[in-house]
Design a protein around this nucleic acid. Sequence first.
RNA 1: UGGGGAGUCGCCAAGUUGGUUAAGGCACUGGGUUUUGAUCCCAGCAUCCGAAGGUUCGAGUCCUUCCUCCUCAGCCA
Length: 594
Amino acid sequence: MSSEKTPIPAGSNFIRAIIEKDLSQNKYATKKWAGSPGDAAHQDTGVVDVAKIRTRFPPEPNGYLHIGHAKSIFLNFGLARDFDGICHLRFDDTNPEKESQEYVDSISDAVQWLGFGWDNTNETNLYFASNYFDLMYRAAESLIETGHAYVDEQSADEMRINRGTLTEAGKDSPYRSRSVADNLARFREMRDGKHADGSMVLRAKIDMASPNINMRDPAIYRVRRAHHHNTGDKWCIYPMYTFAHPIEDALERITHSICTLEFEDQRPFYDWLLERLAEAGLLAHPLPKQYEFARLNLTYVVLSKRKLIQLVEEKHVSGWDDPRLPTLAGARRRGYTPAGFKLFTDRIGVSKADSWIEYTILEDCMREVLNVDAERRIAVLDPIKLVIDNYPADQSEDCFAPNHPLKPELGKRTVQLTKELWIEREDFMEVPSKGFFRLTPDGMVRLRYGYVVKCTGCEKDADGNVTVVHCEYLPDTKSGTPGSDSVKVKGNIHWVSVAHAYEAEVRLYDRLFKEAHPGEGKHEDGRERDFLDDINQDSVQVITTQLELSLKDAKPEESFQFERHGYFVADKKDSVAGKPVFNRTVTLRDAWQK
RNA sequence: UGGGGAGUCGCCAAGUUGGUUAAGGCACUGGGUUUUGAUCCCAGCAUCCGAAGGUUCGAGUCCUUCCUCCUCAGCCA
């Protein structure tokens, strides 16, 4: 990445502290890099790596990225940027049964949308674990040759039983002491398709009595006849994550391999494996090191892949990019922005403590960036007619509205004022509640960017619903003219001319779940709650609105602040030229307690 | 109950080798500005760092014991 360097906040998180220390000790001063991933022999032909550190973002292409991944992306790519390093995008595609090109594409899109990429000065750092299958296979044979791996023919059930429990040691497999030659022959047979799926696995030979269950001879290669999205039908054996990931990191000369907390127990194996392969001459020092941080938990959403898939497949939402979903594709359609996510990740920090971030933090971040970035427009979401009785029916006059109060250089636009206007239904109350200072009989209010008007009454239908509000304007009070403030009013309401309005569809989104921790706890009858029980049935409201005419030209993904309402974005999917529809990204804060 | 982690203000989170009054952000509460009940500005907001002991002139930082939460027994990642 070649982007602006941001100053490094000293010791702002434990990973930065580790990197600063590593760098100050010149830990990577002689680390060689040949320009592409490879084993020790390959890297030795290279030169000292220009990247001071290497990190990686290694998603499995088996689903869509979500907000939690954004944290990891900003962490890994951000670290690389701040420390003169390089971050790789690597697809960890070692399980052919779950992965597909669709996911590879959506993940690539999301990473780029957040502002990162893989094209660096002299190299393209986009990799696939499956491209290392040959090297991984060699590493496995090396492990067998050095007596550190064996082919186990126990069934999965037998393996599970013999693995022991959390408090009891496991038992050695009857196949554990086979000869190197025998193991090698068997493993090659596995590769050559001589054995059925599930009939045997290759296991690392470590210690069946280890208190760390991950060290009790973990399986590292399995037989699985499945078509791989990248390697096709070339292989019928596939490496396990446990085995593959450390090797991927080492081949790419990653310095800091950052993952989430649940992999902590895996670290001893990570180090064990790389040390064995380095001893065998396959990998060179310095070897990558794994560090773990706490994954993101956000209130009012679910981030687990399983639950997201369920929401999509059972059609509780319209798709992976439903604006209510915490997927990056959904957030994007909702109008959330990369800058907002950047602010968010900076704000929540990185640590090892399990935590739940309040969803409002994310919303505040979006408001904060949109307040600065989004131009203002006028939108009447729940229209009711206001008639200015003392205004000529055939008259239309220009009013000037600033495009951005914080950026006068963005200029003003004209909106037309006429006798009949649309105003917000909630801006009129025939019987005002306490503290209400908008339109009410005999009350005065300013029509934003226009005149001060005095309410004279309203019309109602047979059911008592207000249908039209009447008022009279005060001619000398037009905004921007001398003496416009001769009449002071507290209320200030927005409006759109009936004759100059764009009638548009707007979607008002609310949170998808009613509970802060969806599915947590039990029902009154003692039954476990399901996260689906907490779905908010009113999470979207599609309404017909009256917008100022200029909004007709909004481009897909263009964000605006609809004054007094919130931030809205022209939907990237359903908008057509000249007829955009809008999604509410987030409301404005509202300090008025009704 | 074995191993590995984590517990600092309502929510996050600094606090490196022990050294005066425990950063910062968000939230919240006052006050000010404002033609968005928005934004912005100013002020306030942990005698206390999961608990209890101990070491020390001095401990969130060291020691002991205890408590709570997370995580690991896939031929998933």
